[in-house]
Structure formats: C-alpha cells, structure tokens
C-alpha cells in the first residue's frame, strides 16, 4: 500500500479575485521543489463577482492520478471575507487541517463562527493588497498567509513562479506575500461537539423528471428569486442632500435594481446589486458613494 503523502487545498474566492492564479502559483512552486502538483478551477458559468472554487493537489513522492475536485481538503483558503458566512467553507475539512481566511476581524473574534478540530489563520489581506499593490486583488497576499499556516511549499520556491507570472509587478507581489506571511495570526480550534454546526442555504435543483419537455420555463422572470447581491464587496449609499432626483442611476444600472422610493429619492435593491459602482460614477452631482461591505 502506497502511503498517502498528498496535500489537498481548496480555494474559495470570487471571480476576478485571483483564486485560480493563487492555485497556479502554489502548484508551480511545488513543481519547482521537485514535487508533483495540480491546480485547476471548478468550471461553471462563474463571472466576475460570483463565488468560485479552485483546487490544488501536491504530492512530494507519488505522481497524482486523481483528477476530480477536492471534497476533503487539508487546507481551505478563503479570499473573500463575505464568503465565510455565506457558504460552508469548512465542508469536508480534515481534522488537523487548517483554514486560512482574509478578514479584518481578529482571530479570536472569527473563531466563534466555527467549530472543528483544526487551525484557523486570519490575515487582513485586503489592506495589505491595497497598500502594496493598489488594488483589492488578494491572490498573492493569501499565498503568503497560507505558507505561514502550513508548510505546503517553501516560501523561497515562490520567487521564480512569481517573477514569471507578474513580470515587472513581481517585486510588489512578493512584498505583499512577505507582509502577509509575517502578519498572519493563527489559533488552534478544538471545539468538536460543543457547538452545533451552522446550516447554510443550498440551492435546490429540480430532478430531470420534474423538468418540462423542451426545458420550458413557464414562470416569466423568475431569476428575481435569485439574489446576486452577495457578489459585491462595495455597495452604493445615497446622499439625499446632493440628489437632484434625475434618475440617471436607475437608468445606468445593469441589474435594473435602482428604483425611486416614496419621496422620489433613489435607492438600490441590495438583494440584486452587484456593486459595480456605475451609479456612483455616472451621478451628475456625485450624490452616490461606494462603501465597503455588502
């Protein structure tokens, strides 16, 4: 019997945050060390802002034959703070594994959310990325945090793939990686059995027998039930003193979710708002501001 020496990593992020790039960097670094590695995203109609998954497998000794998605990861990395309360990120996480989260909250505060027998590592990756890279793309920053939490690959092995992937921006990305490595806070959670696991809403899909012939949908506009609001990282806030009630915001919203209220001032329905910021950009009087958070 071959000893199982593989490490499996699952990345939770949003389209455009760079979860796939992170997974590729880790795989390249592992290959650089002479290990076997895989990196791949889960394929679906995922778009900018939608929750996405990416996977890694690293094996120091044996070639990797398995090609399926990771369901029982050793490490889970969450790139977007909002996802922690939205989907069950620790689903299938092995005991003794570790969870790495990008959050502005402290590790003591965040560990109240979880139960299980694994490590929790928290880093404020968004602030690091904004400061050093100028954008809220936390892929390389979270790679740094991951390496602090677990010795999946050596830190120095990252240099070559980073240089290859980012060219002129490799220096800043490496610095972000290093800063995250140094500022990640880690705590051990051992609360198995003391806390009931949280339940998460799962989208129920009809079976093939329940579908109409020809895949007809008889209820017009029923995507209205589906909230795209949790895709956003920023949301618009109106300053009614500046608002001239012109309605340009409601016209330029691709979601069609901005409507006037009883007083004639406009408000976005945050259930659908994807936080693109177009209303704020197009407002004549700059009455709209984009504020962090969903």
């Amino acid at each position: 019997m071959i000893k199982d020496t593989s490490i499996e990593i699952r990345w939770h992020g949003r389209g455009g945050q760079g979860a796939v790039t992170s997974a590729e960097l880790i795989a390249l670094a592992a290959i650089h060390e002479g290990k076997f590695a895989q990196a791949f995203p889960s394929f679906g109609p995922e778009r900018r802002g939608a929750p996405v998954l990416a996977f890694n497998r690293i094996d120091a000794e044996n070639p990797i034959r398995i090609r399926s998605g990771v369901t029982k990861p050793d490490i889970v990395v969450v790139l977007d703070p909002g996802l922690v309360t939205l989907i069950n990120v620790t689903d299938g996480l092995k005991p003794g594994g570790c969870l790495v989260v990008n959050s502005t909250r402290t590790v003591e505060d965040l560990q109240q959310e979880f139960s299980g027998d694994w490590k929790l590592a928290v880093v404020d990756a968004a602030s690091i990325a904004r400061e050093l890279l100028g954008v809220n793309i936390v892929n390389t920053t979270m790679v740094g945090a991951l390496l602090k939490a677990s010795e999946a690959v050596k830190f120095d092995s990252l240099k070559a793939p980073l240089g290859e992937r980012f060219g002129a921006r490799a220096g800043a990305n490496f610095e972000a990686c290093m800063r995250a490595y140094n500022s990640t806070a880690i705590s051990q959670i051992t609360t198995t059995g003391t806390k009931k696991p949280k339940s998460f809403a799962v989208e129920k899909m009809p079976g093939w027998r329940e579908l109409l012939v020809g895949c007809m949908v008889t209820e017009p506009g029923n995507t209205k039930r589906f909230g795209t609001g949790d895709w956003k990282s920023q949301h618009p806030v109106w300053d009614d003193k500046k608002c001239i009630k012109c309605g340009i915001c409601s016209l330029v919203c691709p979601e069609g979710c901005i409507k006037p209220n009883n007083e004639g001032y406009y408000r976005a329905n945050l259930f659908y708002c994807k936080g693109c910021g177009m209303c704020a950009h197009e407002c004549w009087t700059q009455a709209i501001k984009m504020v962090e958070g969903t």
């Binding site: 778009r47 802002g49 506009g221 995507t223 909230g227 691709p254 659908y272 994807k274 177009m278």
Partner: peptide
C-alpha cells in the same frame, strides 16, 4: 428581470 448572472458592470446586460 433582475437576478441575471452577468458580471458586475456588464455593458451588454445594460
């Protein structure tokens, strides 16, 4: 209707 899955800031959906 709202609730479509276009990227945020999609000009085509607009």
């Amino acid at each position: 209707a709202s609730g479509h899955r276009a990227c945020s800031g999609c000009g085509e959906a607009l």
